[in-house]
């Protein structure tokens, strides 16, 4: 079983190596129309100098909402796991 898992790990890592060799070189991103729009229009549309913040809280606010929900759920899980043991 361990040998089978080792072979599977080797296959996955070799696929990753193959994918690494055919990636585009670092420093020349391919599709950047959306990001160029954000960089040129973020200041007039949201008034913020920090483009990353304007994406996090304005353009992609739903991502942040889901992320805050995930954090809330994790905190509730941790508090539930340890709150019971303290009372007992």
């Amino acid at each position: 079983m361990r040998r089978f898992a080792l072979v599977a790990l080797m296959i996955v890592v070799s696929f990753l190596f193959f994918g690494m060799t055919i990636m585009h070189p670092i420093g020349k991103p391919i599709l950047q129309d959306m990001d160029n729009y954000f960089i040129t229009h973020a200041q007039e549309e949201t008034g913020a100098n920090n483009v990353v913040t304007s994406i996090v809280f304005d353009y992609r606010g739903f991502d942040t909402l889901g992320e805050a929900t995930v954090l809330f759920a994790a905190v509730s899980g941790v508090a539930m796991l340890f709150g019971r043991r303290i009372r007992a």
Binding site: G47, N49, T53, F57, D58
Partner: peptide
């Protein structure tokens, strides 16, 4: 004093 709701949302988060 710019950016509208962004600082308020930042404070909330």
């Amino acid at each position: 004093n710019t950016a509208g709701t962004l600082p308020l949302m930042s404070i909330a988060v």
